[in-house]
């Protein structure tokens, strides 16, 4: 439950930053916070208290495995999403540098 609330807080802070700040670098940071909140929510979905790693060993029962292993899929999704966010952020920073050189300001 804590994690869900934390991710909600992240999402709200991110949205506020994107909407209210004029400075483009701060807007990009806001986008980062927003996505981080979503990632946290996604990770919290797959988490299981005192869970085991999702590797099926030979002497392990299938029912025991499915009731205790954590869900590995959200982690894969988050990894993909982080890669995407990395490229978006890199592109945004490149554009901001270019904009700064042309106009001399950090606001669009």
């Amino acid at each position: 439950m804590m994690t869900y609330i934390a991710s909600l807080v992240f999402v709200i802070i991110g949205t506020y930053t994107v909407i209210s700040k004029e400075n483009l670098i701060k807007k990009v940071i806001g986008l980062g916070i927003f996505t981080t909140g979503i990632h946290l929510l996604l990770i919290a979905l797959g988490y299981r208290f005192a869970g085991i790693a999702p590797i099926l060993l030979k002497n392990m029962g299938l029912s025991y495995f499915s009731s205790t292993a954590v869900d590995p899929l959200p982690q894969a999704l988050v990894l993909t999403s982080i890669v995407i966010e990395l490229s978006v952020t890199a592109l945004a920073l490149a554009l901001i540098i270019k904009n700064h050189r042309l106009t001399g300001s950090l606001e669009a």
């Binding site: 986008l31 979503i38 945004a92 554009l95």
Partner: peptide
């Protein structure tokens, strides 16, 4: 460049919404 930055910020916000929907 200015149009592109605005498009990027709005666009990546909206794709983040898609991710939130998927979650």
């Amino acid at each position: 460049i200015s149009a592109s930055i605005k498009y990027l910020i709005m666009g990546s916000f909206s794709t983040s919404l898609i991710l939130l929907g998927i979650v």
